[in-house]
Amino acid sequence: MSRQKNNHQENEWIDWLSEYSIEYPDGEKIEDTIFALHAYVPERKKQRFLKKLPLIVQNAFHESLNMSRTFWAANLIHLMAGLLFVVYLGGDPFLSLFVLAPIPFIIGLLDVFRSRDEGMIELELSFRYSHSQVILARLGIVGAFNLACNLLLWSVFHLFAEPVLLMEMLIYWAVPYTLMIAMCLFLSLAFKSIFAAPVSLAMLFILGMAASQFDIDYKALPGPAWLAVFLAALFALYLEVNFIKRGRYHEFSR
């Protein structure tokens, strides 16, 4: 009797509670709500900074795996030619770096702007990682690797050929190198890299020939003047990188 009563009470409770039952939204609606709310979840400032750093490194690492063979070959030739000319043939290390140093960078620019020049940019602009990030990552690889090769050559020349002085490094390497890459980057931004690279290489060759043929006393120009030119070239590079960051280097930025 008491069990029957209990069951009856239980059913009453269930009936009473069922009046308050609500229907759950379907999976898609829940997903949409989460997506909509996601936009309003604030990101921690500290986390944002930390997030950015490895992303650029990650992109650069990934892009390095996709650089063309021509780029790696240019770097290898640059190193071999420098060592052969100076260490084995006893050539002038300064002239060697004057002519050879920018070559891998100039060749590398073909890879940097490959997506724009091969019509992939429209697609890449729709991807998660912005196209400017990809371009800057590639530019980072080209620049960093080129710099590393140059430093290696400098070290070898310093130890096995001629001691390197800071002033000579500025005149024969830093100034022509930064000027040349600033000019080549400018041409690549304004036109296609396939045009910029040969023009820059031709210019470099002419300057190199002129430096080896004519006995010009570059040291006659005072140190601060060289420094000023170097800083101006660096500033031009800074402006160009900013130009890339703002995405002003392709037809879709209009």
Partner: peptide
């Protein structure tokens, strides 16, 4: 997205 003119590598 699939653009009208897809330039592939």
């Amino acid at each position: 997205y699939l653009p009208q003119h897809i330039g592939l590598y």
